[in-house]
């Protein structure tokens, strides 16, 4: 039953034992955010379908997926994003179990740094593609490549901006109920970006280097 007390009510870490009032308040907003995330997943799936089609039929004399994808760089990016997903789950645990906010802020700051590292690596990849003259307008394939990776890049950048806002709100308001549920939604957003990245790495970089 969804409204039974002491049960998990929404995706992500549930804080029912820790803070029952916040838990009850969290259910509808987090379920709503989960619906948004699912629609985001549809967006990414269609960008991946476009990419798959363009990587077969949209080369137009430009680079192939194998030439455009840097497998070593993708490995580093995957490690950074996976590590950041893990540190965010430690952030959620700090939110649930610890009264001192130092642990929470520390883990979230580390998550942010890993996210920044990820963005730096991707920006370097984009710059190196454009440096070779492989800009998005060169072929349908490159348009799809930049659109798919760029959309994910922007999502991660939004996650970092959200984190920055959370640091300010924690400092100004403390860890009240509203701030806590915002951090829980950010956790879902961040973990799902890593799930999307698994799909991107497999389709763009792993599949690309086999083509």
């Amino acid at each position: 039953m969804r409204f039974a007390s002491g049960t998990d009510r929404h995706p992500g870490l549930n804080i029912h034992g820790r803070d029952p009032d916040a838990h009850r308040a969290a259910e509808p907003v987090i379920f709503g955010f989960w619906i948004f995330l699912m629609s985001d997943l549809v967006l990414f799936a269609l960008l991946m379908a476009t990419y798959a089609s363009m990587s077969l039929h949209g080369i137009a004399g430009g680079p192939t997926p194998r030439q455009a994808g840097d497998l070593a760089s993708a490995g580093v990016e995957t490690a950074l994003l996976l590590a950041s997903s893990f540190t965010f789950s430690l952030t959620s645990l700090a939110l649930k179990y610890r009264d001192d906010r130092r642990a929470l802020v520390g883990w979230m700051a580390l998550t942010g740094l890993l996210g920044l590292g990820f963005l730096g690596c991707e920006a370097k990849d984009f710059a190196s593609l454009i440096g070779k003259g492989w800009a998005p307008e060169l072929s349908g394939f490159l348009s799809a490549h930049f659109t798919l990776l760029g959309t994910h890049f922007l999502h991660v950048a939004c996650g970092l901006a959200w984190m920055a806002v959370m640091f300010v709100q924690i400092a100004v308001r403390g860890l009240d109920q509203a701030v806590a549920t915002r951090i829980m939604r950010l956790a879902l957003f961040w973990h799902l970006l890593d799930v999307v990245w698994i799909g991107i790495v497999t389709l763009v970089f792993l599949q690309g280097s086999l083509s």
Partner: peptide, 25 residues
């Protein structure tokens, strides 16, 4: 491997599982 990993992350990081209270999600 990608599908299994997506399942693992849904389970371990997003806490989605087969429990009754998670059915809607």
């Amino acid at each position: 491997l990608a599908l299994v990993q997506i399942g693992c992350q849904l389970f371990f990081f997003l806490h989605i599982d087969l429990r009754r209270s998670h059915r809607d999600d």
